[in-house]
């Protein structure tokens, strides 16, 4: 058995909805059925076969040999197996993902890991706005799993996150961790303005002291705690950090006092 490989025939003429090209769905289908899946989102009406050459038969391992910013919904709802994109993807990659592993070797668009509840998403490049966040109307964002962005994240990373961990390597836009319900967001590099705005609970770990915190956050000093060591150790073991970040006595702010005030922002002490 060899991986199912999708080779792009040409740059797609429209945004593509690739949400069905995941192991859980493909395992049920023959090659010709796969080629007939409708993936267009406009009047072009593209099907898989129009856009991709398809080969291979092991649905547990899905590879897109090239990427495109028009690939939306890659890895949607997957529960197991591996999906890899050798390039960039569009919106909502890893949306509602429950298990398995998804690797994006290029950049990802907005709403990556939207409402994900399990599994592991790694983006080698940058991620767009609202990483892990809910779509319009939904009440909670990411609910579990691990997301690693090696590059930068856009605005409002971890918006309304409820559980799980997001680690961003090279900084983020404004309002990181907005409205977090719980969970953990780690941003190395520089985070934009007012991280944690409207957060109820949860943990934001920053690589650099924030330039602008909302007045809803009040500094709680730098007592020695065990949790920072626990988190550091896990991040290093997972290959997310090269060396411990927070140490034993990180600086801490409690907030957002505008709401529940049970969240926190950590920076190395």
């Amino acid at each position: 058995m060899s991986a199912i490989v999708f080779t792009l025939r040409h740059e797609p003429p429209e945004r593509l909805d690739l949400s069905r090209l995941v192991p859980d769905v493909l395992v049920e289908l023959t090659k010709s059925e796969i080629e007939k899946i409708e993936i267009g989102t406009t009047k072009y009406g593209s099907r898989v076969g129009d856009i991709f050459r398809v080969k291979g038969n092991n649905a547990a391992n899905v590879v897109f040999e090239a990427g495109s910013a028009r690939f939306d919904g890659v890895g949607t709802g997957m529960t197991s197996g591996e999906v890899r994109v050798a390039g960039e993807v569009g919106a909502q990659t890893g949306r509602l993902m429950r298990g398995g592993s998804l690797l994006i070797e290029g950049d990802a668009g907005p709403f990556a890991a939207s409402c994900m509840s399990g599994g592991r998403l790694e983006v080698r490049g940058n991620a767009g706005d609202r990483l892990g966040g809910p779509l319009a109307g939904e009440m909670a964002g990411m609910k579990g799993g691990v997301v690693i962005i090696r590059g930068r994240a856009g605005e409002r990373a971890a918006n309304r996150m409820r559980r799980g961990l997001i680690a961003v390597g090279k900084g983020s836009g404004d309002y990181a961790g907005s409205r977090m319900i719980a969970g953990t967001l780690v941003v190395l590099g520089k985070a934009g303005a007012m991280p944690g705005y409207l957060m109820r609970r949860g943990t934001i770990v920053l690589g650099k002291t924030p330039t602008e915190l909302s007045p809803g956050f009040v500094e709680t000093g730098a007592p020695e705690i065990a949790f920072s060591g626990l988190l550091d150790r896990w991040l290093v073991d997972e290959g997310i950090l090269d060396k411990p970040l927070l140490g034993r006595a990180p600086r801490r702010w409690g907030g957002d006092n505008a709401v529940l005030g049970l969240g926190e922002v950590f920076v190395k002490g």
Partner: peptide, 24 residues
Amino acid sequence: GFQISKKIGGRHFWRMPVMDGEFL
């Protein structure tokens, strides 16, 4: 009510504020 629940690497922890920091 000030306890903090954290899940790290599939393990679940409670952090309880105490006078010298936290009991993890």
